[in-house]
Amino acid sequence: METRDAVRNYIIENFLFGDATPLQQDKMSLLDEGIIDSVGVMELVAFLEQDFELSVDDEDLIPENLDSVDNLVAYIARKKAA
């Protein structure tokens, strides 16, 4: 599965309970749109670590990496390339 699809599917299933309507665009802020809360960020990190076998460092926990589907996809690509 494409990274983008995997990320989208996880967010839709886990935070939106299968209802994709609130996630209209991949650039939308997950926090501002109320899709995740502060605990949700930690769930998201656990997902990246488990499903993509990434190691997420503390300094990576910033909105530029984690706050939208686009940002997540780019972050995963950067980490895998590193």
Binding site: L31, D32, D37, S38, V41, M42, D58, L61, I62, P63, L66, D67
Partner: peptide, 13 residues
């Protein structure tokens, strides 16, 4: 407990 949360997300919330 927020000390465990990523500060940037905390600021946004």
């Amino acid at each position: 407990y927020l000390a465990q949360s990523p500060p940037e997300f905390l600021r946004r919330f």
